[in-house]
């Protein structure tokens, strides 16, 4: 008999030991990323079972929103449609990725209560599940991105590698937010409501639809101190053929490191308890 699997669980032996366990959870969850993907894909399939368009329904409703808001804001802000429409389209698609991942992050552990309370599956598997599920949704919405990139000739000026680097940094950031909201929402059931309000508020404070004007006074403050502006701009600006702000990428790197340190610290401290919160 070949027995490779071995499990050792002990009472808490201090922070360092807990940290080692949390890291072990992380490495097991990364090795088992295939399971996260299976669960995520199953979520996508089962959510749209029986519908003809499936996840493309969201894509379609986004497209309608893009057209409506694109035309309206072109008129309101007096900017040519050829600039506004791609701006709004990319804004809505990538804002959707950011806000949905953070909002759905709240349910990551709560939804998995059954599995967490009777198997030794790594907890972070369920965080990756949420992130991958939203990435799968993004793949559908890429139809819109491809349409504007082709339709407005953005491919001539865009910087695709930089946009992909931006996407990678955004994913690094949304995943720690996802972990953080997952833990706190498991403990306090008010959090999902708060997260939803915060994300809705942020949508209006972030240039998703509206073009940022002169960077003076309040406008400058809103853009500089809004993490979501940097996240969105890191993907959108390179696709639009504009250089993102010099500080954007460093802000995202620092935010990812600091965010992961906080979220992982909290995970280390609460990991033993999370299953009891559920």
């Amino acid at each position: 008999m070949d027995i490779a699997e071995h499990m050792l669980r002990t009472g808490s032996r201090g922070f360092r030991d807990d940290l080692a366990r949390a890291v072990d959870d992380l490495s097991r969850s990364v090795k088992g990323l295939g399971l996260s993907w299976s669960l995520a894909w199953h979520d996508v399939v089962s959510r749209y079972r029986g519908s003809i368009l499936g996840p493309f329904w969201i894509t379609l409703s986004m497209a309608v929103m893009v057209l409506g808001i694109g035309f309206l804001y072109a008129e309101l802000q007096n900017i040519p449609l050829a600039t506004t429409l791609p701006f709004v389209a990319l804004g809505i698609v990538f804002w959707g990725l950011i806000s949905q991942t953070v909002i759905e992050g709240c349910e990551s552990f709560v939804q998995a209560a059954g599995m967490l309370s009777q198997t030794s599956l790594p907890m972070l598997t369920f965080v990756w599940r949420t992130v991958l599920r939203n990435l799968a949704a993004l793949l559908h919405h890429l139809v819109i991105v491809v349409a504007v990139v082709a339709g407005f000739g953005l491919w001539r000026t865009m910087d695709l590698p930089l946009a992909l680097a931006g996407l990678a940094l955004v994913l690094a950031n949304v995943s720690w937010m996802c972990l953080l909201t997952a833990i706190i929402s498991a403990r306090f059931r008010d959090i999902p409501q708060i997260v939803m309000s915060v994300m809705q508020f942020s949508m209006f404070m972030t240039p998703v639809f509206w073009q940022p004007g002169e960077r003076v006074g309040l406008m400058d403050a809103v853009l500089t101190w809004n993490p979501f502006f940097h996240m969105l701009d890191a993907i959108r600006a390179p696709l639009m053929g504009v250089a993102p702000e010099a500080s954007t990428f460093s802000v995202l790197v620092v935010m990812a490191l600091a965010g992961w340190a906080v979220a992982f610290g909290l995970f280390t401290a609460t990991r033993r308890r999370i299953v009891h919160y559920l």
Binding site: I3, E5, H6, M7, L8, R9, T10, G11, S12, L116, S117, Q118, T119, S120, R271, R272, V275
Partner: peptide
């Protein structure tokens, strides 16, 4: 099954566990 962490003491299991 590995779902609950001990508060004190330890659990050691060798082998694939099927709960």
């Amino acid at each position: 099954s590995g779902a609950y962490e001990p508060d004190e003491g330890q659990i050691e299991v060798r082998g694939k566990i099927a709960p």
